[in-house]
Structures are given as structure tokens and as C-alpha cells.
């Protein structure tokens, strides 16, 4: 939270010397990077866990590897969606 306020302060300080459009673009760019960075943390951990557990399951029961792989990709798809929404938010903040 402290980091957030510091970034906000910094953007304010920069904004004081910029025109409003530039100030808005600056703030949006900073927030966009932050948003994507935050959005990537959870899915990163989640996808790592999914793959690890899937490998464990496949090593334990190689005969059910096909089913585990399909389910694994489903789980990855759902987890990854969060990171991708973060990416879309990044694009929206930065360029929209």
C-alpha cells in the first residue's frame, strides 16, 4: 500500500509539470504496468501448482495421463484467464 501511495505521489509530482493529457497518459501507463504485474502474480503461482500436481498425478498413474492432461489444460485455461484479463486491462489503460 505504501508503494502504491508513493507511486501515486510520484505521478502527482510529475503531473504538476505536465499538461493534463500528458498527466493522464502518464498515470495510466504507470497504473497499467502495476495492474498487469499484480494480475500476473496469482495465476503464475496457480499455473505452477496445476502443472506440478498434474505431473505428480501422471507419474503416479501413467495410465490416466490422458485424462489428467485434458483436465490440466482446462485448469490452466481458467487460471490463465485472470492473467489475460489483467493484460487486457493493461492494454485498455495504456492505449484506450
Amino acid at each position: 500500500m505504501e508503494a502504491l501511495t508513493r507511486i501515486a505521489h510520484a505521478s502527482i509530482r510529475v503531473a504538476a509539470e505536465l499538461t493534463p493529457a500528458e498527466a493522464k497518459a502518464n498515470a495510466a501507463a504507470q497504473m497499467a504496468g502495476l495492474a498487469y504485474g499484480l494480475a500476473a502474480i496469482g495465476p503464475g503461482i496457480g499455473i505452477g501448482m496445476i502443472f506440478g500436481k498434474a505431473i505428480e498425478a501422471m507419474a503416479r498413474q501413467p495410465e490416466s495421463a490422458g485424462m489428467v492432461r485434458t483436465t490440466m489444460f482446462l485448469g490452466v485455461a481458467f487460471t490463465e484467464a485472470l492473467a489475460l484479463i489483467g493484460f487486457v486491462a493493461f492494454i485498455l489503460l495504456k492505449f484506450a
Binding site: 481458467f78 484467464a81 489475460l84 484479463i85 493484460f87 487486457v88
Partner: peptide, 12 residues
């Protein structure tokens, strides 16, 4: 999410 997943992966 179906649309965004495909789109955002390829765009990224």
C-alpha cells in the same frame, strides 16, 4: 473469457 483468452494470448 473464451474470446479474451484466445485474443489476449495471441495479442500478447
Amino acid at each position: 473469457s473464451l474470446a479474451v483468452r484466445l485474443f489476449a494470448n495471441m495479442l500478447a
